[in-house]
Write a protein that binds this DNA or RNA. Sequence first.
DNA 1: CCACCCTAGATTGCGTACAACGTCGAGGAG
DNA 2: CTCCTCGACGTTGTACGCAATCTAGGGTGG
Lengths: 220, 220
Amino acid sequence: MTRTAERPAGRASERALADLREAILSGDLAAGAHLGEVELAERLGLSRTPVREALTRLAAEGLVALEAHRGARVTSFTPEDLHGIFDVRLALEPRATARAAAHATADDLDALQDLADRMLAVGAPGPDQDLDALVGLNRDFHARLLDLARAPALAAALANVVHTPVVTRTFHAYDPASLARSLAHHAEIVAALRAGDGDWAGAVMRCHLGNARAVMVGSR
Amino acid sequence: MTRTAERPAGRASERALADLREAILSGDLAAGAHLGEVELAERLGLSRTPVREALTRLAAEGLVALEAHRGARVTSFTPEDLHGIFDVRLALEPRATARAAAHATADDLDALQDLADRMLAVGAPGPDQDLDALVGLNRDFHARLLDLARAPALAAALANVVHTPVVTRTFHAYDPASLARSLAHHAEIVAALRAGDGDWAGAVMRCHLGNARAVMVGSR
DNA sequence: CCACCCTAGATTGCGTACAACGTCGAGGAG
DNA sequence: CTCCTCGACGTTGTACGCAATCTAGGGTGG
């Protein structure tokens, strides 16, 4: 009916998926928000079918919870949940980081270095500090590192856990000292990889995650 | 209240999901098999819609791969993939097992003991040996153990990795010595949990998985 | 005053039809 | 003989409509 000939675009389903995921991760859709299929469909200018498919996939990723005949809700996480999520990250990411040492080429290292440098620049206290830009850079850094591990199963296991809103969104929670540590960790990881020392790199990643958990969940 | 204990039982979508998952895990649908939506729909007596939803969810679980306009295929795993999967299991399951020590009640331990005993009975060499029955018991044992860990995030991370056909299906690949070890491990895990020693239990799980990996992937 | 039932509304679940896209095979040209 | 091009088919992607089901609200009886 409504022929919104705005843009031919790619697959509408993937568009809906990406839009919804971004809306959730960015916080536009608050945790616990009531999501109706018709409402979302109208909002995105699509029919219910692709929206429904997107919701199904988001539910599989754990970003939303489907309640029968009651609508879908954005999943909310308790501090215990967050703690558990960091448990998984601590179990997997240091291992992946260690593996990355064996596969990283000079180009890879340069790219990582570049990301680490830019994060240091954007994250440094002062008028130019941009904590929001940090989010994307941080995601890129970790994603690239994970890719270098050449461990698809490990990456898949992590994927359904790291997507969680709070983990990827907040950099504002960091106090100056923790933020400085976090940014330094990135650089140190690159240094360890350059040295070809997987154990070192993995250890830094453990520190990195421990620091992050302390900031976001607090000591337990 | 109308007690419709009839055929249509339960949501058709979940039925399709369960049927397809079982068909894949049991091997009825061979790895790499060409799955068309219409073909599956006719086979299950449903329309394409629920089948499509089931395929989407299976793809999210990693059991099938959706190829655009070419149909879905049951994912197949290389030895390298399997090795990586066991890497993830080795990183997560021992940790979960250790955590289970803190939460297991007497009833839980009895149930685990029962499963371990039954596996010993069914797995013992002789005319009564039933390797197929082992599959279900083994899955129950690991699932129950994972549940006791009270670590939903960890369980979720594992879920998308353990579902893989080859990992859960084959017990025929075990040689007698390895099989005996594997069954003994289950009993030892229960013993360690009874002793309240999470470290011990986790160590046994590491052995258990190492043994399994050696059987299925071979030494590398 | 409380509990229960019953109706009305809304939402999801599923089926079917249409459209777009990609793939595969056959035929012709070089 | 090989490669390219073109057409038909098959498959997926999306829209829409109907039916079943659940939730919520008001009314009634105890």
